[in-house]
């Protein structure tokens, strides 16, 4: 079995959100839904010296992620129907004919990926652009990234960077063993860090 996965180079990412925009366009997503998230995290403080000058140790960084097509997916485990399943390519997707739209995958996924679309009557999610991949193409988001910060491919051939993503705002990789590898930037804070906050709440929620 092949296992596809993503690689994200956080040192290259500029938070431009082209990946997200391209995915929204290609999959024709409604405004309140996205398969790819770009979280902006920030932390630190500002200090004013006696002479009125400012210094800051503040920092900002971005984490762009979609479904991590986990080895140990939380979504498939809770799915009552088996609609949420891992394919031969390791990509996790929804069998729309079996899905009852119970939303358990949505509740369980720690990457905020699946979402129940009530109009469609089933859950929807990043499927790794499976049909493109099957046709030998790259996912739309990967090809869109102007900074070449995203890669996609069979994990054994994929850049591994600093390993499976263990960066805020994502869970520790031990939770679902994500096939999402990352190269961390200098400002990165580890999973579970409480010293940084989400800076772009209106955008990601």
């Amino acid at each position: 079995m092949t296992q596809y996965g993503f690689y994200f180079d956080a040192t290259r990412c500029t938070g431009c959100k082209t990946c997200e925009a391209a995915c929204r366009d290609y999959h024709d997503l409604p405004l309140d839904l996205t398969y790819r998230h770009v979280y902006e995290l920030e932390g630190g403080t500002w200090i004013q010296a006696a002479d009125g000058t400012w210094t800051t140790d503040s920092y900002t960084f971005y984490t762009s992620f979609a479904c991590s097509h986990c080895d140990d997916p939380a979504c498939t485990q809770v799915c009552p129907t088996g609609a949420m399943h891992k394919g031969d390519d390791g990509l996790v997707s929804v069998d729309t004919h079996r899905c009852i739209g119970c939303g358990y995958c949505e509740l369980a996924c720690p990457y905020g990926n699946p979402h129940v679309d009530r109009d469609k009557g089933h859950s929807v999610k990043c499927d790794g652009c499976a049909s493109r991949v099957a046709a030998g193409e790259q996912p739309v988001c990967v090809e869109a990234c102007s900074m070449r910060a995203l890669e996609f491919g069979p994990v054994e051939k994929l850049n591994q960077g600093d390993g499976r993503a263990a960066v805020a705002p994502l869970p520790d990789p031990s939770v679902t063993t994500p096939n999402f590898y990352i190269k961390n930037c200098a400002a990165a804070q580890p999973s579970g860090s409480t010293s940084c906050v989400v800076a772009n709440e209106a955008e990601v929620k």
């Binding site: 485990q77 799915c79 129907t81 609609a83 079996r98 009852i100 358990y104 859950s123």
Partner: peptide
């Protein structure tokens, strides 16, 4: 449920899915 018509499928997850 968003699609109750498929509800019979829930037996597929017995043993693994808490739901």
């Amino acid at each position: 449920l968003a699609n109750p018509l498929n509800a019979f499928g829930v037996f597929a997850g017995v043993g693994s899915s808490p739901l």
